[in-house]
Design a protein around this nucleic acid. Structure first.
Length: 493
RNA sequence: GGGCCCGUAGCUCAGCUAGGUAGAGCGGCGGGCUUUUAACCCGUAGGCCCCGGGUUCGAAUCCCGGCGGGCCCGCCA
């Protein structure tokens, strides 16, 4: 590793003086966060020290030298503390401080807390200690490029307050999802990430090799088929929050690994799941935002989304409204020419009626769904894992939740008919043979599990990263994933 | 998979259209300043202009090839 020569010399200098630039321990009396809290309670902002013999620590962000009295900002856990250093208190250690300490170093400081004339909470420093000498010059935090931030996220978290706050909110959301589901009586479970057959979604997988078995296995693309095995096995309300992996493109809404919530609920159907989904979003709005009104930046306009009101409407109704004509009365040829005018290609390039309707819906109607909308009753061809509709032939009991033009949830009355499952998987095999790389593979063990008998079940999937995008007003998935995928060349640099 | 843009000091970038001594701000270093908020003032060092080839008296600049990065469109959550 190549380090900054000047900083290396400082380390040498410190060691020569018998000072360890990386000591084992520094005892603090308060964190910076705690000191700021104390400062907030001092409404009169006393100019004289009101708390003495304080010891705290943080990272040096900014040094402002003024001759014999200087100011230094240190940060910890996203909170700033200003230090005031004076020759009067530090004597010869004053000059030493500026010879030894650079931006980015982590230091411990002891002294007295007071407010400056400008009203800034400040520590009058009486002693200091190097806790970790940094060897890399911190970047100009206002000018960090997105690529740099994503490749070296720890720097982003340190110097970009928004990135830090986005992560804090991400983990609040995940914690509140768990709280909600646990209260609803769901059990959090785990399923394998390495699987002999991938499934539960239509996507290209990552392949791996198990040396011991000398077999090719896959990284999971969803949680579905194993969670349903829990349902078969007699666990009636289960959920998992975990990473899934899809070997597809990387862009502002797609990362090859992303976090998915899936839950399965025995003796429930997709209507029950819709009700549950509404309660979940309402819970999150209350706990995370403190209101059901959410502001989101959509393109160049800001929209206010009401998370207290969910519309329920069928896909056919929405598409018919948009086209100004009944979709069911349109011929396959009409649909196909409509596809062509919009430059659309259906899944696997199969111009099947149901797939064309889904594609047209995605392209034409989805962007208009700004307020929370449950879109119900999809064509059978869109998924091999959903139960046929109880009253509408050719459709399945599926819904997707759209907010701000994005998909946030996908749910089914789950297919539990083993004979139909076998047939639909076989049809997917045919799609794969015809070149659809995202067709669903046949999972023999899963069909066998259904053969043992799975109760009627409702299931739900929610992409956590996109949910965090919504709740943090971010338009790029890279902002809400702690370590988004970027080229390794960019990371290694 | 199709189209567009970029690569110059440690960092952010100007210079390229119209070829003629390599520039600024920040950061570094030296000096000044005892309540500043990205402090300020004075001085100073710092370059394989991504790599290779071509055109030319002369290339950061024009042309060709390569490498690296980004953006848009199509497909996927």
């Amino acid at each position: 590793m190549k380090w900054d020569e000047r900083r290396l010399k400082i380390i040498e200098y410190l060691r020569d003086k018998g000072i360890n630039p990386y000591p084992q321990k520094y005892v603090i009396t308060h964190s910076i966060v705690q000191l700021r809290k104390i400062g907030l309670e001092k409404n009169d902002r006393p100019k004289d020290p009101f708390l003495t013999n304080v010891r705290t620590a943080g990272r040096v962000a900014n040094l402002r030298r003024h001759g014999k009295a200087s100011f230094v900002d240190i940060f910890d856990e996203g909170e700033k503390l200003q230090l005031y250093l004076r020759v009067n208190e530090l004597q010869n250690r004053y000059e030493q401080f500026f010879a030894e300490v650079d931006r980015g170093d982590i230091i411990g400081v002891g002294g007295d807390l007071f407010f400056t004339a400008k009203g800034e909470l400040t520590l009058l420093v009486r002693d200091y200690q190097m806790l970790a000498k940094s060897l890399v010059e911190p970047p100009d935090w206002s000018k960090m490029s997105p690529e740099f931030r994503y490749a070296h996220r720890y720097v982003d978290f340190l110097y970009n307050d928004r990135a830090r706050q986005t992560m804090e909110r991400r983990y609040t959301i995940i914690r509140e999802i768990r709280n909600f589901l646990n209260l609803e009586g769901f059990l959090e479970v785990e399923t394998p990430i390495l699987q002999p057959v991938y499934g539960g979604a239509l996507a290209k997988p990552f392949k791996s090799h198990i040396n011991y078995l000398d077999e090719d296995w896959y990284l999971r693309i969803s949680l579905e088929l194993y969670l349903k095995r829990y349902i078969v096995g007699g666990f009636n309300k289960v959920y998992e929050i975990g990473k899934v992996f899809r070997n597809e493109d990387i862009d502002v809404t797609h990362n090859p690994e992303f976090t998915l919530l899936e839950l399965y609920w025995a003796y429930a159907d997709y209507i029950d799941i819709m009700d549950l989904t509404e309660r979940l979003f309402s819970h999150l709005a209350n706990r995370v935002l403190g209101t059901h009104e959410l502001k989101y930046h959509l393109g160049d306009r800001e929209v206010v989304i009401d998370l207290g009101k969910f519309r329920r409407v069928s896909m056919f109704e929405l598409l018919s409204d948009h086209l100004g004509k009944d979709v069911e009365s349109m011929s396959d040829e009409e649909l196909k020419s409509l596809m062509k005018t919009h430059g659309l290609v259906p899944r696997g390039s199969m111009y099947v009626r149901g797939l064309m309707i889904e594609k047209l819906f995605d392209k034409l109607v989805t962007p208009e769904l700004v307020q929370p909308t449950f879109v119900t009753d999809y064509p059978q061809e869109t998924t091999p894992l959903c139960k046929p509709h109880r009253s509408k032939p050719g459709l399945v009991e599926r819904f997707e939740l759209y907010i701000a033009g994005m998909e946030f949830a996908n749910a089914y009355t789950e297919l539990n008919d083993p004979i139909l499952q076998d047939k639909l998987f076989n049809e997917e095999q045919e799609m794969m043979r015809r070149g659809d790389q995202e067709a669903h593979p046949y999972d023999r063990d899963f069909v066998r599990a259904l053969g043992y008998g799975m109760p009627p079940t409702g299931g739900l999937g929610i992409g956590i990263d996109r949910l965090v995008m919504l709740f943090t007003n971010n338009s790029s998935i890279k902002e809400v994933i702690p370590f988004p995928m970027v080229s390794s060349k960019l990371i290694e640099e």
